[in-house]
């Protein structure tokens, strides 16, 4: 099925885990979590939302040079299947 890009909204790098105990970690760790991004030239694991459709968030791996999409995951699949590879 073909859907337009405009049906979706981008929501950035995927699988950034929120630290478990924000009050007990250092400013450096918190700053890393909040702001630092991989921003790779090449394969990027990222979140999108089907904002004009079912409104679900999902994860894709896309090439930031030519926009090839390699794979897509539900949020649950993504956290189980790709977390260990990328972190």
């Amino acid at each position: 099925m073909h859907l337009e890009e405009e049906d979706f909204s981008y929501s950035g790098e995927a699988l950034i885990a929120r630290p478990n105990n924000p009050s007990s970690i250092s400013d450096d760790e918190w700053g890393d979590y909040l702001f630092m991004r991989k921003n790779p030239k090449g394969r990027h694991v990222e979140q999108w939302q089907h904002s004009s459709g079912c409104r679900k968030f999902f994860v894709i791996e896309r090439n930031t040079i030519d926009n090839t999409i390699y794979s897509s995951y539900t949020m649950i699949q993504a956290s189980k299947e790709i977390k260990h590879e990328t972190n």
Binding site: G12, M36, R37, K38, N39, P40, K41, T64
Partner: peptide
Amino acid sequence: GHSSVLAEMANVRLPIES
């Protein structure tokens, strides 16, 4: 736009998105 690519070469982290 390529700042993150250079940063990665030095293991420096940047809050930049291209």
